[in-house]
Amino acid sequence: MDIRYSTGKIPFRTMTTDEMRDEFLVKDIFKKDDVTAVYSHIDRIVTMGAMPVSGAVRLDKNIDAMKDFGVDFFLQRREIGMINIGGDGIVVADGVRYEVNHYDALYLGAGTKDVTLESKDSSKPAKFYMNSTPAHKTFPSRIITYEQANHIHMGSAAESNDRTINQYIHPDILETCQLSMGMTHLETGSVWNTMPAHTHERRMEVYFYFDFPEDQVVFHFMGEPQETRHIVMHNDEAVINPSWSIHSGCGTSNYTFIWSMGGENRTYTDQDWIKTPDLR
């Protein structure tokens, strides 16, 4: 498991492109018959990916629970959310079978011990994108299908941000300790996300960009509002954003991204907005 340590505002200002990418960019998320994990000390979120092809894989395949988290098993004091962006899949958690099909989500509460992930069709493997955060109590596990998510249309073609926000693991859908997850899809011709930009001092956020051509990119903007930087993102890559940083992007084509948050609260509107002309 790759471990990343927190970077403050002052060191961030002088980081090179490579240093920024090493600290905040998460690459190679999906590997055949494997589970990847990046543990960030920013609110201790874990960003994970699994692409089972030949058979089922264990969620904790590459995690030493005692060494990495000081517990007997990975989710003993953690919750996890996942959204399947690949072919239809199956997750078995403590003997309960969940069908997690394309664009469906699954939430597993703290205390879930044995978790395996598999694909229904090896020629169309599932791709489980996951985030896990610390949890102080157990909330019920449940599937959230694409149809059950909240679908909120925002923006316009004139503003280049005609998009639909799909809320899955969200206070209006189910209870969690701190984890929130959703998926935003931009329509053809729209390229901007999360603009006007904002920060939220009490929450961090991870953005995972996907569903755009391999020869296109997304410029992800981060940093303090008056001292912004960018990281160039390729398909199926994620970026870790501290609470003091904006998180916004502009693509060379439209795209889809999954947002995941952890921190002090789950109030979706707890944001500090920045007027676009005030950005630097």
Rank of each mutant, 00 (worst) to 15 (best):
V91G: 02
V71M: 04
D43S: 13
E147R: 07
T112M: 07
Y5L: 14
S6C: 10
T7A: 09
E214M: 09
H102A: 11
F73Q: 09
A149G: 00
Y107A: 04
Y39D: 10
I143T: 08
D72Q: 10
E23V: 10
N193E: 12
H41G: 09
I240S: 03
R78I: 04
L108H: 06
S180L: 15
D215I: 07
V206S: 05
M66Y: 15
T112A: 08
M51R: 15
T188H: 13
Q271F: 07
P196I: 09
S54V: 08
M1D: 09
T267M: 08
F24M: 07
K275Y: 13
G155P: 01
A238H: 04
H102N: 14
G223Y: 11
D104A: 05
M181W: 04
T184Y: 00
V239I: 15
Y103I: 02
W273I: 11
N193G: 05
Y129P: 00
K61M: 15
D2C: 02
A157E: 14
R4N: 05
D172K: 00
F210W: 07
D104W: 02
A56Q: 13
I274F: 13
H41K: 15
V92S: 07
T199K: 11
M261A: 10
N84Y: 06
D278K: 12
V46K: 09
I85P: 02
T17M: 08
R266W: 01
Q76L: 05
M204V: 10
K32G: 00
S248K: 09
D215K: 10
S253I: 06
T16M: 06
G55D: 09
I80M: 12
P171D: 03
H102P: 00
M15G: 02
R58N: 13
F212K: 02
S123R: 15
I246K: 10
I10T: 14
T267Q: 11
D2V: 15
S156N: 08
W259H: 04
Y207I: 03
M233W: 06
H185V: 11
R97G: 00
R97L: 07
V100G: 03
D270P: 05
M222T: 13
S190H: 08
G189H: 11
V96P: 01
F69K: 04
N241L: 14
M1I: 10
T269K: 11
K31E: 13
E147V: 03
I90A: 01
Q271E: 10
M51S: 13
N131V: 14
P11V: 07
A105G: 12
M222V: 12
T112P: 02
V100I: 12
M15C: 04
V38G: 02
N166Q: 00
L59R: 06
L117V: 05
L59W: 12
M48T: 06
Q148P: 00
D104E: 01
M154S: 12
M20A: 07
V57W: 08
M195V: 11
V115P: 00
Q76Y: 04
H247K: 08
